[in-house]
Design a binder for these strands. Structure first.
Length: 784
DNA sequence: CTGTTTTAGTTTTTT
DNA sequence: ACTAAAACAG
């Protein structure tokens, strides 16, 4: 096989080129830089695989490389891969990263998406098998609750005793567990309205079917019904999906688990990636058990642990590992890193929530400036991670005052705002006259004189005649059942509706939206609205019109909105990130602040009350997630006093503070006891049992903060603490009696003032801020 | 039907 | 303490 008259220096013959390509495919460059475990996770393509990917171990890289690998080696074509995530963001990111590896071929990955979007696609194909049409609408939580409310009203269930929200929650729970009304365990029915749970659930499903609608839970549940009831359909999907991949497996609920098991049944080529230590969604149906029993469910499964952490320094990693070790139900991993050293986790106790925000803001300013041995940080490299959103306000207030730029991540989402949902209701009604829920929502928004009684009457007529509400309205308008004024209003509304529907086909949908908002009087009503939120709402609507341009047509737009309740944000400004621990999952920051580590706040009291030991373990995982977000520095803090729902409460440091290994922590407190007995940290936490401050914290390794204002060694409500700051507890009479009329005082919340009178344990104070006279039973600061 | 007063709820969040 | 929704009165 000698190539004819080919010179050694000439171009390689074609055969050689393809050989090279083959060699390249055998050891492709996308595998470069993977550690042995990661590589194993990528290359073990056949058979069940569970990848236990600890925090910061390169999970996403493994996931995307694995998919790219399957495609590059020709084991499957893009449309033969099923890859599911929980969020649109994760799906988007995965698609982008695969595209970066394998190029435009990634566009063929039509089964890469969230559980719900994939399930919705499948349901569109087989909708008739569960009594729906393929153009069914997907109701969000709000619609769902209103529908349930109607069912309860129709069934004369006392809404006071049995709130619709509760049934909505139960139904959601049932659907998460894969229970249709028929399969509902009898005991469950008892949780609502004297054993009527099941019947009401059934009625709700019936209403959904009539409306040709389903809720989010149904997407999965209907899939299950279809797969189990129609083996031929399931076999079809067995044929189609050669490889299955699941992200965040620890967050799957029972329905998702069953769905997956059905689809994986035949080929068993399923790869689940997750971390049992980061399971933080138990309260919405996630079953950690799914990941814990993977090996039992898929016999012969290969379990691969990714334990090398590329994110955090060793102190941070060790602190997090020490904390999570207190959890009993876990598979167990030992994370390690080559980034030895770094700063210890700093833990600090402060006087109150305000001191905490002052401390953190100071530190942010210092980090921003940089120092002798520290490089300046960008604002965006710092994050404050809180347990609950009410904790955010203190920081926002402080940041506004100091002009530190910040962004709050999460919060009420764009598409869930009332004005956006109103606008959508108009569109939905224009598109489909059968959409009763949309009709109810906007028939009197803006106010056009069609009140509750009229709407009820229309709905009654609709139910009687078995027609949609709009059709009922058309009938009623022709009669004299309504007052003249109401009739005219309704007639005008119907006339507008018809006109918009006629125009819908002729104009681009963003233009239609504008017209509807103007002509309905919606924007006018907002312009007249003097409340401070009205301006923002108008702007949201403008933004909405903008965003609509991204979809091809009205239909596509509404479809998109119902599944992707999320909008692409523009490039992030340089700002400190404030968010909940939940929304921080998957992110990382060089410097992380973890405020509010107090018993009852974090771990959340409610979580412990409702779910006991299980709840506590989930809280601990949340703490673990928090610490492992930090690359270089983590700062935990707790306050001795905190305002919760407007009330001042004494706080105890969180047990999680004690569970941090001493060797990796540097702790100090500005409050409370110092010099308690030795060994407290080693022998479990020592909570300050005294009914007084609760600010107390003591253990070896703790040092008194230099900036301390207090000299008294045992502060308590019974005594005045002498010190430069003169902080005084006045809940007890002896403390209040330390004051006399005319004393100058400072209160944490109300500011400066002077004492008007002392009576028992109460001080009456005239505050400088005009008109504020308050009776104080919490802490005030006496001015020297 | 609309404007005012009373009351309940207030962890975490996605689809 | 604050807010949003429900109940009530005009």
């Amino acid at each position: 096989m000698s190539p004819p008259e080919s010179h050694p220096d000439s171009e390689l013959p074609a055969t050689r080129v393809s050989d090279l390509a083959r060699v390249r495919a055998a050891a492709p460059d996308y595998l470069e830089g993977l550690n042995p475990e990661q590589r194993e996770a990528v290359e073990t393509t056949d058979g069940p695989v569970l990848v236990l990917a600890g925090a910061g171990t390169g999970k996403t890289r493994v996931l995307t490389t694995r998919l790219a690998h399957i495609l590059a080696t020709g084991k499957a074509r893009p449309w033969e891969l099923l890859a599911v995530t929980f969020t649109n963001k994760a799906a988007r990111e995965m698609r982008e990263r695969i595209t970066a590896i394998i190029g435009p071929q990634a566009e063929g990955l039509r089964w890469l998406g969230t559980f719900h979007s994939v399930a919705a696609q499948i349901l569109r194909k087989h909708a008739e098998l569960v009594g729906l049409k393929s153009n069914y609408t997907i109701l969000d939580q709000d619609d769902q609750e209103r529908l349930i409310k109607q069912v309860l009203e129709a069934e004369n269930v006392d809404a006071k005793r049995w709130p619709p929200k509760m049934l909505a929650g139960l139904i959601d729970h049932w659907k998460n567990r894969g229970w249709t009304p028929d399969k509902l365990p009898p005991a469950e029915s008892a949780h609502f309205a004297n054993n009527r749970g099941q019947a009401l659930y059934r009625l709700y499903q019936e209403r959904l079917r009539v409306l040709n609608a389903c809720d989010f839970g149904d997407l999965l549940l209907h899939n299950l019904t279809i797969f189990t009831g129609h083996p031929d359909v399931l076999a079809d999907y067995h044929e189609r999906f050669r490889y299955l991949l699941v992200d965040e497996y620890q967050d799957t609920n029972v329905a998702q688990y069953l769905w997956l098991r059905l689809l994986a049944q035949k080929r068993q080529n399923v790869c689940c990636v997750g971390d049992d230590d980061q399971s933080i969604y138990g309260w919405r149906g996630a079953e950690v058990d799914n990941i814990l029993r993977f090996e039992r469910d898929f016999p012969g499964a290969k379990v691969i642990r990714l334990e090398r952490n590329y994110r955090s320094t060793s102190h941070i990693l060790a602190a997090a590992s020490g904390l999570i070790a207190a959890n009993k139900s876990r598979l167990g991993k030992t994370l390690w890193t080559e980034a030895e050293g770094g700063e210890k986790v700093i833990v600090r106790g402060v006087w109150d929530g305000e001191a905490e925000s002052r401390l953190i803001a100071d530190e942010i300013e210092r980090a921003k400036k940089g120092g002798a041995d520290k490089n300046p940080r960008k604002y965006r490299d710092m994050a404050i991670l809180v347990r609950a959103s009410f904790q955010m306000r203190a920081f926002e207030e402080r940041f506004v005052m100091l002009q530190i730029p910040y962004t709050v991540v999460g919060g009420p989402r764009f598409f869930e705002r009332a004005e956006i949902r109103d606008a959508h209701a108009y569109l939905r009604l224009i598109q489909s006259e059968d959409d009763d829920l949309a009709f109810e929502r906007i028939v009197n928004v803006p106010k056009r004189g069609i009140g509750e009684t009229t709407v009820q009457k229309l709905l009654q007529v609709a139910r009687l005649n078995g027609v949609p509400a709009v059709a009922a309205a058309r009938q009623v308008v022709l009669t004299d059942e309504l007052a003249a004024r109401t009739r005219t209003a309704l007639a005008n509304f119907l006339r507008d509706l018809d006109r918009w529907r006629a125009e819908a086909g002729r104009m681009p949908h963003p233009r239609l939206m504008e017209a509807v908002l103007e002509e309905s009087g919606y924007t006018d009503a907002l312009r007249l609205d003097k409340s401070p939120t009205a301006q923002g709402r108008l702007e949201n609507l403008k933004e909405l019109v903008q965003a609509m341009g991204n979809s091809e047509n009205l239909q596509a737009y509404l479809e998109h909105v119902s599944l992707v309740m999320d909008m692409d944000r523009g490039p992030q400004a340089d700002a400190v990130q404030i968010m909940t621990l939940h929304s921080a999952k998957g992110l990382e920051f060089p410097l992380v602040f973890l405020p509010g580590w107090e018993e009852g706040v974090f771990p959340s009291q409610r979580s412990m009350d409702e779910s006991g030991e299980k709840g506590l373990e989930e809280e601990r995982r949340l703490a673990y997630v928090g610490i492992t977000r930090a690359r270089e520095e983590a700062r935990v803090s707790f306050a001795a006093n905190r305002q919760v729902y407007g009330r001042w409460t004494s706080q105890l440091p969180s047990r999680f503070v004690d569970e941090l290994p001493l060797a990796n922590v540097e702790a100090s407190s500005e409050t409370g006891y110092y010099g308690g007995g030795p060994g407290m940290q080693q022998h479990g936490s020592r909570w300050d049992e005294s009914p007084s401050f609760g600010a107390g914290y003591s253990s070896p390794g703790w040092k008194r903060a230099q900036a301390s204002n207090y000299k008294g060694s045992h502060p308590g409500r019974q005594q005045v603490i002498e010190g430069e700051g003169r902080l005084v507890a006045v809940s007890e009479s002896s403390a209040a009696s330390a004051y006399k009329r005319g004393d100058r005082v400072f209160h944490i919340k109300f500011g400066y003032g002077h004492v008007r009178g002392v009576e028992g344990n109460k001080l009456t104070v005239d505050f400088d801020k005009a008109g504020e006279k308050k009776v104080i039973d919490s802490f005030v600061e006496k001015q020297a």
